[in-house]
Design a protein around this nucleic acid. Structure first.
Lengths: 209, 209, 209, 209
DNA sequence: CATGAATGAGTTTTCATTCAT
DNA sequence: AATGAATGAAAACTCATTCAT
């Protein structure tokens, strides 16, 4: 049997891991299955990656950093994946432009490593953090959107958080489509985020009970 | 010793399973733990339910059927969870009322069996089906919302599907909050769905490339 | 195949574990091997004991507690396995009596569960703790035994600690003999400890360099 | 490129192995780590040593031989590590001088290769053999020390063996201290062995049952 | 009806050793 | 003489499911 070059095996592992991770997610993807998919013994897999975590980070890492770097820059260091507290001065409609820029950049990053982005999008820990900022970010708008109809703070919170998840899920959905070219994907993301940006400026009337 | 009625045991199992499923999710909920929680042996548990899957389906089932029955009724049999093809004649703004009604009904169903609804909301298979109809349902509106800017059918599809997921995720988020009373939950759902209903009537301008 | 009673299996496991532990020690004894020795699957073994640690504690536990209780009592709570700091007022030759009593009691405890004691004696963690107290306990005597010849505090420490280990090793050796009856074992332990008790009262002359 | 001499590599391996063995002990020292520490590949390491065992024996070997040679010499070929049977005519107090000499020599050997000695001291197989001779060597004295109180041959054996282990453990403890200089270590060993030599001349009274 | 003992395949990770190059 | 890729069996532990009683 021919001796295989290291790099070739490494990429076979990564390819197999991507498949598994997309299919099953972090928790349910198994090292055994990844090894099998890469035509390796498990022992050998561990020569290439010290742990499941390291393997996944290798796949996700770069992409995650790119996103973080960009968001930090756009928000003047106000938001980062690595801090749970964050501040943001959102003056007026600037947010609309911000969302558009972020959307465009996400698309760029996506095309540099599509499956990394897809896996990352499915990562619960990442989603949670994103949801947390977004939720805080839009609370202000949500309270304006519905005016006095939602006096209750609890309801306001739930609604902000739900919208945050809602927005993120939609973005994830876009990125999980495989057969869009860059132009099409950009259009989708822009339309999607643009719609929410539009929403944030509206007054929504709630019908009476 | 009093003979324990079958039905009583069954419901004890279901109660225990609900707890476990909510705490740990499908994959991590263990049959042993469920049995223990119901004060039963594993072996006996399997006399009531053939498999983990069946048990979960039983829990979700009733609630799912209620939802299905209601949606069918509201859409004149146009939409059902159990058929992948469906048709819908949506004339004008009727959909807005429909959404409001569906939202209210969901809240009612939720309060009949909150945990079943919560588990159901976390169930991927269910989400997928709901997403499918919703996606088809709103395709029509989405094409109108963005006008000619989105001529491409593929983009239209992706966007509809993403909005569908987006809407569903938001509803799920609302239902997964535990400390809302019926009035508050209804308000949330109504605000949330109302916002999307409002959206469907708007024209969104997308900025140039 | 006949259904085996729980208790019977439990004792088979314990028997097998004792064998393994004596042969290999805690770290190198494997659950797999223990299961095999008890004619069980590993999975089934875990039905009886939640972890390796629990299994070992089951075997050692009672014996360890007995020893601890007795030593505490004899030293007026001055020494316990569970605290790293301890104090002890040793007035004169009382220690000789104490050692004799402790020796006798150890033999009693040994015969209540010989292999438990043997495993416990091989347990590094236990040895370490015993060595620590003994070392502190005899520092005082050692400095008297050698008079001015050992001015150096470091040397004094090393020597005390080495004697502590020395004493413990000898006791362990006695207990690891399998074919002594109670009277014989008591004689051994008493002779052994008596010798050290005797030593602690002597002045040892060290020859010149 | 300069050809690396075999011997140079060999000693690098041995140096690295010493470090690993001291840090982790036989079982937990890993060949991969040893190779890494010697700046070698695993495969190549196996060209120099056929197995882990051989490597360890090589390290211990020289020191062990030195000890053996010296003891043989001192006992007129009466004792050797490599024969299980041995004879020894010990007339009177000569043993005291012998012990002192052996102690001094051990310290010399120790400083020729401290880590080899430390590893050797931790080696169970070696301890066993040393214990065996020492045990036989002191049987004669032990029977004199306790007079008629220990008529039983079995008890006599156990006690001799326990004292042998006891003595060895103490010596090991001394050698495992790392920060003693030669003079201090010699003092320790001499005090320690001197104490036992002193003991061997005493009559120990055992209290009545 | 019910018990709970048992199984077999699963999880991640480690490691001495072999062997094609 | 050297490399480092690969193997296979081991470790502790888990779990859905089956089955003798």
């Amino acid at each position: 049997m021919a001796q295989v070059l290291k790099e070739e095996v490494r990429s076979r592992i990564i390819a197999s891991a991507k498949k598994e991770l997309l299919k099953k997610g972090y928790k349910d993807a198994s090292m055994r299955e990844i090894a099998k998919g890469a035509d390796l013994t498990v022992g050998n897999l561990y020569r290439y990656f010290d742990s499941k975590e390291e393997l996944v980070n290798t796949i996700i890492g770069t992409t995650l950093e790119k996103i973080d770097r960009f968001v930090k820059e756009k928000t003047n260091e106000g938001i980062s994946l690595n801090k749970s507290d964050f501040s943001l001065d959102v003056s007026g409609k600037i947010i609309a432009y911000m969302l558009k820029d972020i959307g465009d950049e996400l698309v760029e990053i996506y095309f540099e490593s599509p499956s990394a982005m897809q896996i990352l999008m499915k990562d619960e820990a990442v989603s949670k953090r994103m949801r947390k900022w977004l939720s805080k970010l839009i609370t202000y708008f949500v309270s304006k959107m519905y005016g006095d109809s939602l006096l209750n703070a609890k309801v306001l919170d739930v609604l902000s958080d739900s919208f945050a998840l809602s927005i993120i899920s939609g973005i994830q959905a876009c990125f999980l489509y495989k057969d869009l070219n860059k132009k099409e994907l950009k259009l989708c993301i822009r339309a999607y985020l643009g719609t929410f940006a539009f929403l944030l400026d509206q007054k929504i009337e709630l019908g009476e009970e």
